[in-house]
């Protein structure tokens, strides 16, 4: 017997006491999936919980997003930025106008090149109010995973209609992306550690600065 066959045979022997073949009939699950969590105002809660992680959040009207992207990058003293291919072209124009060097990921930059770039600007897939989480499904306006990982500053633009109350609704919205094989990155604040005497330090290997624009 090879390892696979032997493990399956061990499992079947171990489960000799299970007589109902249908998992759903054998163990019913009393849980309503994708239920929203009640809250006064989803957007207010989102801003509050993201700020709790020491990320910077600004709420701006959709029309002002390009200029705010540029001013936030300048405020963070960013001199070079990498942009995913599918980014809103008006953001790119504003960034270039602000005198910030724009690097394209086409052909893909290698990790050493990425490591030399200060910042990345992306859109997002979903925002989660209750947990302050921003989820990327790495569509064309978010780029491949390494882009939002290696540069030290990540500026992410979340649209108001992308923000949901809590994780169940978020997972519901992401089902199609996962089924299509897209990876997901859930981001809740800048990278952090509490490994030394449980003292929280913001910023370890992932981006140490997380800037969030909520576009309404």
């Amino acid at each position: 017997m090879n390892a696979r066959e032997e493990i399956f045979s061990r499992i079947r022997t171990a489960l000799a006491d299970v007589t109902e073949p249908d998992p759903a009939l054998d163990v019913p699950i009393e849980w309503v999936y994708q239920r929203p969590t009640p809250m006064a105002d989803v957007l207010d809660r989102f801003v509050e919980t993201v700020e709790d992680y020491k990320a910077l959040v600004v709420r701006v009207p959709a029309a002002e997003v390009p200029t705010r992207v540029a001013t936030l990058l300048r405020g963070a003293e960013v001199s070079s930025v990498v942009l995913p291919a599918g980014i809103d072209p008006t953001w790119r124009t504003a960034i270039v106008a602000a005198g910030i060097e724009v690097r394209e990921d086409d052909p893909p930059l290698d990790r050493m090149e990425l490591n030399e770039i200060d910042a990345v600007v992306t859109a997002a897939a979903v925002g989660v109010a209750e947990t302050g989480t921003i989820i990327l499904d790495h569509a064309a306006d978010q780029g491949r995973r390494a882009l939002t990982l290696v540069p030290d500053t990540h500026l992410v633009v979340v649209r108001a209609d992308q923000v949901v109350s809590d994780v169940p609704e978020a997972v519901g919205r992401l089902g199609a992306s996962v089924a299509a094989g897209s990876p997901l990155t859930w981001i809740s604040g800048p990278s952090a550690t509490s490994d030394i005497e449980l003292s929280r330090v913001e910023g370890v290997h992932g981006p140490r600065k997380l800037l969030v624009i909520l576009a309404e």
Binding site: P108, V167, V178, S182, P183, T185, S188, S194, G206
Partner: peptide, 20 residues
């Protein structure tokens, strides 16, 4: 960790062409 959510959660499905 007693957090509402941990800073990063990664999900991947086999090989993603051009990513990772």
């Amino acid at each position: 960790t007693g957090e509402r959510m941990n800073p990063y959660t990664s999900l991947w499905t086999g090989v993603t062409p051009g990513d990772g």
